[in-house]
Amino acid sequence: MAFFEMRGIRKSFGRTEVLKGVDLTLDRGQTLAIIGSSGSGKTTMLRCINFLEVPDQGTISLGGEQLLDAGAAKKLSEKELRALRLRFGLVFQNFNLFPQYTVLGNLCLAPQMIARDRPDFKKNKKQIYKEIEEKAYTLLEKVGMSEKAQSYPCQLSGGQQQRVAIARALALSPDILCFDEPTSALDPELTVEVLNVLRALAKENMTMIVVTHEMAFAEEVADRILFLDKGVAEFDGDAKVAFGGECPSQRLRDFVGSIRK
């Protein structure tokens, strides 16, 4: 069994079926790129992975543990959903940093909230907060933003904001880090700095799922490709095959060709 598996994922909004039974498998330390034209369901797929949407049908398992069986009668409670969401990180297209907090505050807020549930929180509050802050500084260093720890998001460029957003997602040590078109809202010269962070994470064997339009990047970094077309997985397999001349899916070949032009 693969590290992360989704089977038969279906999701409808009203009468529109956006995902029509999509499968996905990913091994630990690999990077998966989800590609496809707009309206293909790739963002919905990512939102299902992060439990921002709960699939109507299908199963999700991580590290051999079944996280979701949408067919089961029991609906997930708010608390269960929160616990599940913590297994995954998500970096948004438009960053969504919290504007009223400093960079450091953005990284520390959620870990501090979660630490409140620890039984020793009251006793060791200072120590716990110190550890959270230290970890935040380590992560900021990793994305090259430690000098801006005390800045507010509005004082940063888009690329810097996105790097902070990546650090924020990493602060909760997710098993899988997801990216929803992380460079779409950035100027071309700023995409480079964000992609460099992703490259570094891939090298460290962070398990990642990236929805992207950057074909060159997908080809370079991704181990696997999931090509969605109208809610169906047209191709799910090795990246080398996906971008090679022998790709079995005509649609994917056309898609890659049209973007490369």
Binding site: L52, E78, R82, F88, F92, M113, A169
Partner: peptide, 13 residues
């Protein structure tokens, strides 16, 4: 997105 950013970080409503 602000709300969703809080959600994916495991925060309560």
């Amino acid at each position: 997105g602000q709300y969703e950013a809080g959600q994916v970080l495991g925060m309560t409503k």
